[in-house]
């Protein structure tokens, strides 16, 4: 991919207090009811035995993959990756086929099931706010700085630095660094991401890559089929010129039952 991957998030589950201000900010920014926000919560639920109880949460939104499966899948190109690597959504193009929902390994795209003419709902990293020099609404609102927003490399470096500085506090895994071939959203957490309820994928390469391997081969396969079929037709025709004459005679037979 030749694009710049300018922006990134760092989400720290050890700092999140489940206040859901980010959800409210998203709802206000995109002018949608709370059940249609493009950000929601993942969490461990209550763990351990009283009085030793623990519970971790983290906000969850589009990872903005480096090689997004949804962009590869979208029938009409409503999902695109812009020059900053942001995965954008064009609600003027979308036909509501929902292929992106199956393609996304992080289960991000949502669908307006209750609408008569229904569209996909997905985080666009508040591109409009960025254009005005601002931060995404969720990051700007977070009171504990559990959501940090900045340059992608800086966020990744910070994620590793935090783990290095306090190895007892975090599991040694920056979620999003290699998942699905790498993303622009990084998570660090005191407990495993499986416990956090986040999708676990072994793929270090985006399925979008394998998808392109096949779809880009299609024109060549089509040309081969067309040429092979034409060749077979001509070769066999030459061989059986006599049979062809006989066949023509039987073709002209009148129909005997109407």
């Amino acid at each position: 991919m030749s694009r710049n991957h300018t922006y990134g998030f760092l989400i720290d589950a050890s700092r999140c207090i489940d206040c859901r201000a980010c959800l409210v900010a998203c709802s206000v920014e995109n002018d949608v009811p709370m059940e249609h926000t493009r950000i929601w919560m993942k969490g461990t639920g209550v763990m351990g035995k009283f009085p030793d109880l623990q519970r971790y949460t983290a906000p969850y939104h589009c990872m903005h993959c480096l090689d997004p499966s949804c962009v590869s899948a979208c029938t009409v190109g409503a999902l695109q990756q812009n020059e900053d690597g942001i995965v954008t959504y064009d609600d003027k193009r979308c036909i509501g086929c929902r292929y992106c929902m199956y393609a996304c390994p992080f289960e991000i795209p949502n669908f307006e099931w209750d609408q008569r003419l229904a569209l996909i709902v997905k985080c666009d990293l508040c591109v409009n706010r960025l254009a005005e020099g601002g931060q995404p609404a969720c990051a700007a609102t977070c009171p504990t700085q559990a959501i940090l927003f900045g340059k992608r490399e800086e966020m990744l470096a910070l994620a590793h630095a935090r783990i290095e500085d306090a190895p007892h506090r975090y599991v040694n895994h920056v979620y999003g660094e290699f998942e699905n071939g790498g993303t622009s959203t990084f998570y660090i957490s005191p407990v495993s991401f499986e416990q956090m309820g986040m999708p676990i994928t072994d793929e270090t390469r985006s399925p979008a890559h394998f998808n392109r391997l096949v779809t880009h081969g299609t024109p060549a396969v089509a040309a081969t089929v067309a040429v092979a079929m034409s060749g077979a037709y001509l070769a066999i025709k030459r061989q059986s010129a006599d049979n062809a004459a006989a066949e023509q005679a039987s073709d002209g037979r009148p129909d005997d039952h109407e």
Partner: peptide, 13 residues
Amino acid sequence: HFIVYPNINSALF
């Protein structure tokens, strides 16, 4: 829309 907005990477297209 599939006629006017092509995505050549998409199998569904």
